[in-house]
Structures are given as structure tokens and as C-alpha cells.
Design a protein around this nucleic acid. Structure first.
Lengths: 170, 170
DNA sequence: GGCGCCATGTAACCAGTTACATGATTGC
DNA sequence: GCAATCATGTAACTGGTTACATGGCGCC
């Protein structure tokens, strides 16, 4: 996931590893955050894959390695962004995808919100089935309340997704 | 976190590694789930720490290693469960703690819900500050919507916590 | 001269995963 | 006789973390 986050950032503009971390701090930090110890190795990995390129500069005495996304990288990023928007990998991936929604054509983005909404229904159904399988006598009120939270959470998130689905421009 | 989950399960009743996984599957699976590849090593670790004990039995030809929590384990578990209920480690830890709420004295549990609620306020405040720091012109509607979701999510969860806070019995 | 920020990176560690290996029992 | 379930476990890998190491710039 971190690599797609980095790739997405580089679609906004070329950046150094340091800037990537700073950008995370003020944009995605509540759902996606990483330390230098994972950012720099991730950049090396992406470079090796040829999904990003780099230029070294010395600016006012400081070494800066500025990374940019390559056509291969764009393809990899777009494949990730346009693959099924399910909730299976959790809230974090959902929000990261939404964050980069502007890189998807307007016609596609609505169907992605619909996919998400369907996935949330599926999640809720699974919980409902789970609930039916458990005899109520075998579960205390705290255990039951975690199930309840799950159901309410999926309902809330689904409703939110529907309400915030981008409107089609006529 | 996994070790506290296992410890909590063993407070309900002694179990084998296999049973622990099966129990997870039908109780905590939407917020806490692990494979055998992490359960068995975790049990070994807990055994080494003397937080759990084990008895080997051969029942109808099958080897079963039944684990039980020790007094040291109970202490470790209680320390974890009664440490500050913050939202810092995410939804999963919050739900796991609630799941084991019955192991906390009735007087304490209410204050834990209050702690959680305060922690959620704090999280929301951080997002509010973040939002103020970002000039609106610099952010597209998708980026903005992830912020919005964060705020709504914290509000929803806080409201839920308050509504489901256990009532004091008179 | 010292602090805070800019900037890069590595090493040790941690907690998990998937895939594999083994083997017995139960029920159709 | 075969599939599903019960039962234990390891090895290779993954994707991150914290702490450390290094060093220059800008400003008071």
C-alpha cells in the first residue's frame, strides 16, 4: 500500500523522500503514515522496478534526490486504483483510493463508489450471518456489542459513501 | 495484540491452539484474526513468559495441547485491559478491549468508555487543526473528502460509545 | 555556538502472512 | 475409500517499526 501512496503523491508532483513524509503528515496521516525507515527502502524498490526515476541535485549544499513517476509507474498505479474497490483491505485502503480519486475518469469514479457500497453490504451480511450462528445465551453483552458496532459501522460507512459519491456533471 | 486476545480467550476457558483459531473465527474475526502461523508461535512465547500453562492429552488418538492462563498471565492481561483506553492503536484494539469488558469491575468499565470518548474527541480535534492548516485552494474535493470522513467517523464512533456505555446497576 | 529543520540512509527487530509438512479421526 | 475436520508445527517471506549514524543550512 505504501508504494501506491508514494506513486500517487508523485503524480501530483516530483518529490524527495523527505518531502513525501512531510506531505503524508499533512494529508493522509490519519489513514496512511510511514517512517523514513520504510519510505527510503520503498523508493529504492520502486526505482529498481523502474516505476519511478530520480535526479540528484545539490541545492544550497544539501543533497536532494528528486523522484518522479515513470510511464510504467503510472500504469501500475492506475491498475491498482482501478481494480475493484472493496473493503477487504480495510478503511485505510478505501480512504487512500478516495484520496487519489481525481486520477480516475469521471465516468469511472461513480462505479467505484458503487463497488465500495456493495462491498460494505457484503461485509454487513457476513456479520449478520455470524450473529445468527451464535446462540445468544453463549455471548455476553460486551461481546455482543462488538458485533453491533461492526454492523453500525458498515451502515454508517455505506451511507457516507452514497452521500459523498461525486455527482455527474451534465 | 494477539497475545492479549489469546489471554482473554483463555480467561473464558482453557483451549488448544486449534480451538483458539476457531473461536476467533466466530467471535472476533471482523476486528481480530490470526493464522496458525502466528497463533502457535504466540502460544510458545506466552508459555516461555509463564503467562500460560499447558497440558498434553491424547484424546481419541489425537494429540491435544490444552493451554490455560496462569496468575502471571492474568496480571499481564489485566494490566493491558485496564491501561488507558485510547484510540491510538486503532479500531481493532478498541473493539478487542470492549470484547473483554466483562473482566473489568463494573465501576471501572464506565470510566474506560469515558476515556475512549475523550480520546475520540482528541483525534477529531487533530483533524480539525490539520484542516485549518491546509489552504482550501491546495486540496481537491477527493482529498478533502478523506478529511471529512475522518471527522464524521470520529463523531459517529464517539456517539456510539456514549450510547452503548454500560449503565450502572443500582 | 546551538537548536531546529532539511536530507539521506542502515541495522536490528517485530509481528504478522502464506505455503508447506505431517498425521489421525469422523462420517458419508 | 475419500473428503472434511481436528491437530500441531516450521520456513521463507513481507512490510513495517525504532533507533542509530551522518552531515549541512538558517537563524537567533
Amino acid at each position: 500500500m505504501l508504494i501506491y501512496c508514494i506513486l500517487g503523491f508523485l503524480r501530483f508532483k516530483p518529490m524527495t523522500g523527505y518531502e513525501i513524509k512531510a506531505f503524508m503528515e499533512k494529508s493522509t496521516r490519519n489513514f496512511m503514515f510511514a517512517s523514513f525507515g520504510s519510505i527510503y527502502p520503498a523508493l529504492k524498490r520502486l526505482k529498481k522496478m523502474k516505476w519511478i526515476s530520480s535526479v540528484q541535485k545539490v541545492e544550497s549544499g544539501r543533497l536532494r534526490i528528486i523522484y518522479d513517476i515513470t510511464p510504467d509507474g503510472k500504469e501500475g498505479f492506475n491498475n491498482w486504483l482501478s481494480s475493484r474497490w472493496s473493503f477487504d483491505k480495510g478503511l485505510e485502503e478505501m480512504l487512500l483510493r478516495i484520496f487519489f480519486g481525481s486520477f480516475l475518469p469521471a465516468e469511472v469514479i461513480q462505479s467505484k463508489y458503487d463497488e465500495l457500497s456493495a462491498s460494505l453490504d457484503g461485509k454487513r451480511d457476513t456479520l449478520l450471518k455470524l450473529e445468527k450462528e451464535i446462540p445468544e445465551a453463549n455471548i455476553n453483552s460486551f461481546q455482543h456489542s462488538t458485533l453491533l458496532y461492526g454492523k453500525d459501522f458498515y451502515s454508517f460507512t455505506k451511507k457516507w459513501i452514497i452521500e459523498h459519491k461525486p455527482k455527474m456533471l451534465k
